[in-house]
């Protein structure tokens, strides 16, 4: 089973997908239109690129910062949370799902993904 299928089976997960670090393609499943999933994948990729660069800048200025390479990031809104680890994104309904479970699962499932493709 793919990680996207696993994620969709988790409570509160509305949509999940993967995007290419090069930005040329994405795939997703769940309750999002094709266009909105494209917008989401562009945003997720941009933020992933930014945090990776920021972490490398931080590392250059302050070695052993413990943040490099970043595994992912979360944006927590009042109703929804965006959770991204490596090149996988996931949209969670805050009322129905557990962020800790989701982050734990994604970090474990994607631990072996190399970050040098970013």
């Amino acid at each position: 089973m793919s990680i996207v299928t696993d994620l969709l089976a988790k409570p509160g997960v509305i949509a999940a997908g993967e995007y290419a670090y090069r930005g040329d393609r994405f795939s997703y499943r769940g309750e999002l239109s094709e266009n909105h999933a494209r917008v989401a994948s562009i945003m997720c990729r941009a933020t992933t690129m930014s945090v990776n660069m920021e972490a490398s800048m931080l590392e250059a200025l302050q070695p052993l910062s413990g943040l490099l390479p970043p595994r992912g990031w979360l944006v927590h809104g009042p109703g929804y949370t965006v959770c991204v680890v490596a090149n996988v994104f996931c949209l969670l309904d805050n009322r129905k799902g557990s962020i800790n479970d989701l982050v734990g699962f994604m970090c474990q499932a994607l631990a072996a993904i190399p970050s040098d493709m970013i």
């Binding site: 909105h36 945090v51 972490a55 910062s65 413990g66 943040l67 490099l68 390479p69 970043p70 595994r71 992912g72 990031w73 979360l74 944006v75 927590h76 809104g77 009042p78 109703g79 929804y80 965006v82 680890v85 805050n94 982050v103 970090c107």
Partner: peptide, 17 residues
């Protein structure tokens, strides 16, 4: 689709921290 603004938290999950 509402429910993101205002952003409540931003989290960076680093390698160790």
């Amino acid at each position: 689709m509402e429910g993101f603004y205002p952003i409540q938290e931003f989290t960076l999950i680093g390698f160790d921290w």
